[in-house]
Design a protein around this nucleic acid. Structure first.
Lengths: 226, 226
DNA sequence: AGGCATTCGTGCACACGTTCACAAAGCAGG
DNA sequence: CCTGCTTTGTGAACGTGTGCACGAATGCCT
């Protein structure tokens, strides 16, 4: 019985913060903390306490007034809401620099996203083994996706190959894509795409950096925690 | 004196989109396109046309009614506003999997962010050369930052070392940080931090994926939760 | 020159997100 | 039980972002 509550829509901004709370709570649980206030969690997450409470209230009323939240229970509820009660195998397209780094990044599988496969279009790369996973040809994508029930694909190809990779993923039945290539992908409405763009992030930093320089003085330490 | 306009504050949401417009416009310019309407740019960027116009209007009135925008001029203006008229050397902390991939990623330097150095705390990694850059010890960070006037640092360390890396960067004088480690960093107010968190992105995809499955069809994986 | 088609720039209304402030609800101690 | 302290949950105000709709400006054609 997924409760009534699980049908409720949670704001995007909140969904984006839940993973952060989850990580912090998990860490705290490991350190033996079993109860925590919204104030403390807010401090650790670097956000406003009211925001924490409102975010958590979308999951239900799992706190105890005057006391706080029971860490273990909250961890369970967030995991359930995010759909993390089971593993979500991912397939990586592109076995270049980035693809290798991603496949080799241990925290991937540990966090519930085992690498179901790595594929590349270059026959020269097919067959090599990286981080215990053999690179296979992109033509095998559909069989990998179906065999392992993969619904998440990661694009780690050069820009020019990214749209092609997306097309392959969609054709194979993948419904969520994490795209590291700096291009805007065209996919069916039903497919969810999230983008991680290094250059964009750097350019945003750059904007603020340049703007700061426009001031006059080279200010430095104004220490404060978030 | 164009500076009047450059003092104006541009909304964060717009700043985050400008790099996308910039990339598209640059590509189009290379393909010989020299004029473009907001409609066309919106289509290529996957956003609303009114949004494109409003975004660009923060830079000034650089369009021509009835015609569109001159691509080359717009490229120049966006680059100027983002502060991309000069190179911004970056220093990478952490020479592990990710650090190597980042240093080896060519598009880095090409886009105006040359790698001024890669440092690690592990003496075993110091001295090795990756992508033409020799890995140096983290103690050399201050001299690298000062010698090359670095203001942007990239953290590519394991989680546990990230706060330490941030402290080193701040102490060395870096004022902008791009953090790949899944932790919340504590830094002085004057330092700008942006986060790229793989696990968070995957978990967000996951939420929607799970939610979609919550429909009716008795697909796949419902049975096998631990 | 005048009319028509096109496209920019922007005012306005609405949606979304954040923060404050406070009542409600619990615990502790006498 | 009652008082006082703590912390949640949420209504309401405020701020930011989005998208429509339309006037204003421009080019083209006759």
């Amino acid at each position: 019985m997924p409760s009534d509550r699980s049908r409720r829509r949670i704001p995007d901004a909140t969904v984006a913060r839940l993973p952060v709370y989850l990580r912090i709570l998990t860490e705290q649980a490991e350190e033996g903390v079993d109860s925590m206030s919204s104030d403390r969690l807010a401090e650790l997450a670097g956000v406003n306490a009211a925001k924490v409470r409102k975010d958590l209230s979308y999951l239900g009323s799992y706190g105890t007034r005057g006391v706080g939240y029971e860490v273990a229970y909250l961890v369970y509820q967030i995991r359930r809401e995010l759909g993390l009660t089971r593993d979500w195998p991912v397939v990586i397209v592109g076995a270049g620099n980035l693809g290798q780094a991603l496949a080799g990044y241990g925290g991937f599988g540990e966090r519930g996203f085992p690498v179901a496969g790595v594929v590349d279009i270059d026959p020269g790369k097919v067959g090599s083994v990286l981080a215990g996973v053999r690179v296979r040809h992109i033509d095998e994508l559909p069989s990998i996706v179906q065999a392992k029930r993969v619904s998440i694909g990661v694009i780690a190809t050069p820009s020019l190959a990214a749209q092609d990779a997306a097309d392959h993923l969609v054709a194979a039945g993948v419904t969520s894509i994490l795209n590291f290539a700096p291009v805007v992908l065209t996919v069916p409405r039903s497919v969810e795409v999230r983008k991680v763009d290094l250059a964009v992030e750097l350019q945003i930093l750059c904007y603020h950096e340049q703007r700061r320089g426009g001031g006059l003085h080279a200010v430095t330490t104004r220490s404060a925690t978030a």
